[in-house]
Amino acid sequence: KKVLATKVLGTVKWFNVRNGYGFINRNDTKEDVFVHQTAIKKNNPRKYLRSVGDGETVEFDVVEGEKGAEAANVTGPDGVPVEGSR
């Protein structure tokens, strides 16, 4: 997949743990970017399912997906594990 941007910060708009996807709002362009649970690189080690929490700040790369921009290599800021869904 073509990389459109790297090390982008954003805020998780919503994430559905059961369906394994959601959207992140980019801090720079204010665009919403699709995020799938497989894109989460560093999950909260205390959680079994990969997820990001609503309102959580995350860092990610933006790649060209089949339906437009999507997140890849999702971590917390500066590469720490994500907090995950509460």
Rank of each mutant, 00 (worst) to 15 (best):
K1P: 04
K1W: 06
V3D: 04
L4V: 09
L4R: 01
L4I: 13
L4Y: 07
L4C: 03
A5D: 08
K7S: 08
K7N: 11
K7H: 09
K7A: 08
V8H: 01
L9F: 05
L9V: 13
L9C: 08
T11L: 07
K13G: 01
W14F: 08
F15V: 01
F15L: 03
F15Y: 11
N16Q: 02
N16I: 05
N16F: 06
V17G: 08
V17K: 12
R18D: 09
N19R: 15
N19S: 13
N19K: 15
G20S: 03
G20Y: 03
G20P: 00
G20A: 05
Y21G: 04
G22V: 01
G22T: 02
G22C: 01
F23I: 09
F23M: 08
I24W: 04
N25W: 04
N25V: 15
N27H: 14
D28R: 01
T29S: 06
K30M: 08
E31L: 01
D32Y: 00
D32E: 06
D32M: 02
V33G: 02
V33K: 03
V33T: 03
F34T: 05
V35A: 05
H36E: 07
H36L: 02
H36I: 01
Q37K: 15
Q37H: 15
Q37G: 09
Q37L: 14
Q37R: 15
T38H: 08
T38R: 10
A39M: 07
A39V: 03
A39F: 03
K41Q: 10
K41W: 09
K41G: 09
N43Q: 14
N43P: 14
N43V: 13
N44I: 10
P45C: 15
K47E: 14
K47F: 10
K47A: 13
K47L: 10
Y48C: 14
L49H: 10
L49R: 15
R50T: 12
R50D: 10
R50N: 15
S51P: 10
S51I: 13
V52P: 06
V52F: 13
G53E: 15
G53N: 11
G53R: 15
D54C: 15
D54G: 15
D54F: 14
D54I: 14
G55L: 05
G55K: 06
G55M: 06
E56A: 12
T57W: 07
V58E: 01
E59C: 12
E59I: 14
F60Q: 03
F60L: 05
F60K: 02
D61L: 00
D61H: 00
D61N: 06
D61K: 01
V62E: 03
E64G: 05
E64C: 09
E64A: 11
E66Q: 12
E66Y: 07
K67Q: 11
A69L: 14
A71T: 01
A72E: 08
A72V: 13
A72W: 12
N73S: 05
N73Q: 05
T75M: 07
T75L: 06
T75V: 08
G76S: 14
P77M: 14
D78H: 09
D78G: 15
D78W: 09
D78K: 13
V80A: 14
P81N: 13
P81I: 10
P81R: 10
V82W: 09
V82P: 12
V82Y: 10
E83M: 13
E83R: 15
G84H: 10
S85W: 11
